[in-house]
Amino acid sequence: MDRLIVAVSERALPADDCVRHLADAGFGTFEFFSFPTWDDAEPLLFERSVSLIIMDVSVEGTSEAVAMLKNDDMFSHVPTLAVIAESDAASIERVSEIGFDAWIPVKAVDAAETLLPVALRPLIAGFQRVASLLQKTSELQEAGIKDFILLDLIKDYIPKTIWDIAQQFAHEQKIAIPEEEMDLTIVFADLKGFTPMTQHMAPREVIQTLNSVFAVASRIVYEFDGDIDKFLGDAFFAVFSDATRAVKAMVRLQLELAEMNDTRRTEGLPTVEFRIGMHSGPVIRGNVGGNHRFDNTLIGDTVNTASRLEALAPPGGIMISEETRARVGTPLPSTTMQRVPIRGRDEEITVYSLPPRRNTKPNDATT
């Protein structure tokens, strides 16, 4: 189907010559329709796909018509070309204010047949400028969509904390994330005996099992305002700013995992159990890596101690340091206090073993 040019002008426009010279200029075949008023032309815009709209600025209602075109998603991409009486600065400024994409002087329309090839050059040039503008706009839109998809993909692969910081710094036009000292509760959770279990599983089954467990862990961590800093094979490393919510989250996780294991047993599947260690204290968030790859991570004795406590926790249980227990705002359920040696420390530390209770409601886990 031929492309469509719609003109709105009280003067007769050389339609055939316009179409011919556009074709000669390499724009392909067009149909040309001319109307004396915008009201006459408007119905055709809803019936056919329009490639170019030419409007005489002297026609009543031109400004309103262009405003409608530019604000309507159906027509905002269609180039608009103004026919002006004089190509002086004031006239050109006016058509720009109205919102036209390009302009052509009326004398080019009134030119004699012998001058048409020359006279229509502004029209062709205007059409080329508009086409170039639309192409650039399309490329920018496509690039914007790709960037949006890329960012949406990346967002799921980095900690929420880092994403939020990066967004803030990008808004402030800062190009580096600085080191930051903070006080946090660190959680390490590792699936007990998972590696030997995978010897009898296909790789796809391993991923499916991990994802089913980590889906529960992720949901609970974020529900209690935490953030998963890393997945480490069959383990994860999470952070909380509130120790009470951190403990509640991990008790909830152990309870839900116990319920999941009931289902897995009935289906003849092996059970999965987390060992969890928790410690609270000062850490530093910093950038680690080289020029081509950085990791923004948490470093410090608090992180190391939480990892050591996870190794001491029983399967299905939670090992909490004295520092974390002191920050919990509500009494903990029955715990076992003990002194344990920690690799890298000269003295033993006080820890509390918190086994999950199947009859405890998740929201009341620390009450």
Rank of each mutant, 00 (worst) to 15 (best):
R3C: 08
I5C: 04
V6N: 06
V8Q: 07
R11Q: 15
D16W: 01
V19Y: 08
F32K: 13
F33L: 13
F35Y: 15
D39F: 04
S51K: 03
I53Q: 00
I53V: 13
V57T: 14
E60R: 10
E60T: 13
E60H: 09
A65R: 09
A65Q: 09
V66Y: 02
D72L: 03
M74R: 15
H77W: 03
T80A: 07
L81W: 06
L81A: 06
A90I: 11
R94H: 15
S96P: 03
A112T: 11
V118F: 10
V118G: 03
A119L: 10
L123P: 01
L123W: 05
L123D: 06
L133E: 08
Q135D: 02
K136L: 04
T137D: 12
T137V: 05
L140T: 03
Q141L: 01
I145Q: 12
K146Y: 00
D147T: 07
I149G: 00
L153N: 10
L153C: 11
I154S: 02
Y157A: 02
P159M: 01
K160G: 13
K160E: 12
Q167F: 02
Q168K: 12
E172I: 09
Q173I: 07
K174G: 04
K174S: 06
I177W: 07
A189N: 01
A189H: 03
G193K: 05
T195Y: 03
P196D: 12
M197G: 05
M201D: 03
M201Q: 08
V206K: 14
I207H: 00
T209F: 03
S212L: 05
S212P: 00
F214P: 08
I220G: 00
Y222M: 06
D225S: 11
D227C: 07
D229N: 14
K230H: 04
G233S: 05
G233C: 07
S241K: 11
S241R: 14
D242I: 09
A243S: 05
A246V: 05
A246W: 04
K248L: 10
A249C: 00
A249S: 13
A249G: 10
M250I: 08
L255H: 12
E259D: 15
G268R: 04
T271P: 00
G289S: 13
I299W: 03
V303R: 01
A311G: 11
G316A: 00
I318T: 14
E323M: 15
T324P: 02
T324L: 08
R327L: 15
G329N: 10
P331K: 09
V340Y: 00
G344C: 05
L354N: 09
P356R: 15
R357G: 06
D364Q: 12
A365I: 00
T367R: 12
